[in-house]
């Protein structure tokens, strides 16, 4: 982590609240290690996110006298919603890049029932389907106009 990186462990804790564990076999987005990818994609919005994270920790400390990561889940979500409302763009920017990174992750792709591979070269089987459904259309008078 370099000096300018988004602060941990609060950043990963926030990612874990945005996309929590799916089940016992698939942890939340922070624990999946997506922080670095998300941060690298934030571009200029990184400052907005950094200030949201700082606000979150400050709120946790003033309101609950604890760091954000030490709070129970329900309280974390409540504070996150509060900061999301006061720091417009904080969560919005995060989720664009988080959703993109998360739904490309091999374990997530398998969890939604796909093989973890790019489409090429194996492709997919696709049934040709029932062309008999077109009988109704065939029975129609022609639609085009003479010109």
């Amino acid at each position: 982590m370099n000096e300018d990186s988004l602060p941990e462990p609060v950043f990963s804790a926030v990612l874990d609240e945005l996309i929590p564990a799916r089940d016992s076999s698939l942890p939340g987005a922070g624990a999946l290690g997506l922080g670095a990818t998300v941060e690298s994609r934030l571009g200029a919005a990184v400052a907005l996110v950094a200030s949201g994270l700082a606000a979150l920790d400050a709120l946790a400390n003033t309101r609950k006298a604890r760091d954000f990561v030490d709070l129970p889940r329900e309280v974390r979500v409540e504070l996150l919603r509060e900061v999301a409302a006061s720091h417009l763009g904080f969560v919005e920017n995060l989720i664009v890049h988080l959703y993109s990174a998360y739904y490309q992750h091999p374990r997530v792709i398998e969890a939604i029932g796909l093989e973890n591979r790019p489409p090429y070269p194996d492709g997919y089987e696709l049934e040709s389907g029932d062309l008999g459904l077109l009988d109704l259309v065939r029975e129609r008078a022609r639609l085009y106009r003479d010109a």
Binding site: Y103, Q104, P106, R117, P119, Y120
Partner: peptide, 8 residues
């Protein structure tokens, strides 16, 4: 489509 990350 030849690589992971293709969709983005």
């Amino acid at each position: 489509t030849t690589r992971s990350g293709w969709e983005l």
